[in-house]
Structure formats: structure tokens, C-alpha cells
Amino acid sequence: MTQPAESAPPERRDSSAVLPVAASAMPPVGAAAPTPPAAVAMRRFSAWYGRHQVLQAIDLDIPERQVCAFIGPSGCGKSTLLRWVNRMNDSIVGARADGTLTLHGSDLLGRTVDVVALRRRVGMVFQKPNPFPKSIKENVVFGAKLHYRLARADLDEIVEKALRAAALWDEVKDRLGSPALGLSGGQQQRLCIARALAVDPEVLLMDEPCSALDPRSTASIEALIRQLRTNYTIVIVTHNMQQASRISDTTAFFFEGRLVENSATDLLFTSPTQKQTEDYVSGRFG
């Protein structure tokens, strides 16, 4: 979990001070001209752990069926933001947020939001591969079984489809019943992706999905992410700027809880408009 190292300026707003959504609903700075509709939209989104403010008034649109990378130094709040999109922060005592966060226009922050239904629409892949200590097949169908009533034949179909989508089918099709923990790290991570895809989400959140993997596995996951963008909206947090430039369509650079710059990836890396972005992507700090 990301814990900000530096103390952010004490800029706390209560919800009454938040501007109306329309007033700030302008396109993000420097976005590529034909912007697809936003899958996830944030307006003046702020988040706290206890009294410590982690994110400050973020305005960000995450375009549909594209890969959006979150980059920034450790503690900049990018993981926290990612975890708010599927409300994984709910289990953290003292975590709260303000502003608006919507998925295809519907609110994600209200008390009445059904978190279980939300997580069916927004899947997540974690930093370290975390397959269940069950068989490969049981791992893939775990989420699907939670949300759908399925016959045995449907299950087989789901398993094959999800494993093919995660580019793992050919490697494991003959041993679907063997334990998932027997797979290599890269295979385990692709299994976790297959498990998330089997639920048929709209958005896939990835929190540094390659940081525990070797270069070859990383390459296969990156190739997979490029393929998946045709069907899914993908948000990926990464510490690796080469990775961000290789796989993402848009990149958002965060620093000390603020969104510094968000634009098409090639623009952000070649001609950043902000000094901080330039310093970071050229490796001068972070």
C-alpha cells in the first residue's frame, strides 16, 4: 500500500465547498484530439487516511477501452487512487474520500453503492500474484461462480475463454486440475488476470502487476495488456516509465497527491508541459 512519505499541505475542503461537477468538467490537459468517452471520471476527488490527505482535488478522465498508466514517485497517491475505483480502501480504517468518482456516469462513492456489484464491473490485479491455493480451474471460476448461476458446461467454456484471453490456455490446458501454486510467477499473474476477466468486468485495475516478475514474464504480461485494451478499459499503476511508455495510451503523472499532468503517453514523455513531469520522466528525481 502506498503511504505518502511527505506530508501534503493541509488543504482540506468539506463537501459543501466542492465546485459543481459541470464547472470543472473540462477535458483533461493535452488529451489527444478524438477522446473516447470516459469510463471512469473524477472531479475534485480528494482522499484521506485518517487526517492525512493523500489525494488533492484530482480531475481525471480515464478513456474507455484504452490503457491509462498512473506514474509518479512512491507515496504520490497513485495506488490509493486506483484502489478507490473498486473501493478496496473500504477495509482500511480511516480511509475516506470526497468529490466525485463515477463509472460510466454512475456514482461510486455513496454509501448506497453496492460494493460487490461494483467489483463485478471493476476487476483488479495485484502487485504480487495471489492465486488461491486451489486448482487452476477453481481459480478461474471463483469470481464467475460468485456472480452467475452456471452449469458445468458453462464453467468449462468460461475457463477456456478466460485463460485464452489471458494468453495462458496453451500452457495449462492439459493440467487445469493441478494446483495454481505450482505455476511460475508470470503464469500465476496471468492466471490472476484470467480470474479477473472471467467475471466479465468493464474496467481492469492493475497495481504494479509486473513488479514481482522477471523480464520475460513482464514482456508477456505487457503484450497481454496491449491485447486486452480492445475489450477492456485498463488502468495500470507502474513504477517503470519504460513500461508506461510501451503499453499505455494515456499517462497521468502524480506528485505529492496532485495530478500534475495527464495526456497522451507519447506527448507526456516527449514534450511534457510541466517542469515536474519533465524532471520525473527524464529521471532527474523519483
Binding site: N130, F132, L146, R195
Partner: peptide
């Protein structure tokens, strides 16, 4: 491990499903 609980939660399990299945 906490990671197993998180995996189950992120797939949309209720608390009881997390407890019972994982």
C-alpha cells in the same frame, strides 16, 4: 495471507463468501 482475502474481495465476494470460500 491478506493477499488471499484481497483477491476474493476484489472479485466481488461478500464478507461471508470470503470467509467461507477462502
Amino acid at each position: 495471507p491478506k493477499s488471499l482475502r484481497q483477491a476474493a474481495e476484489a472479485l466481488g465476494s461478500t464478507r461471508w463468501q470470503v470467509a467461507w470460500r477462502v
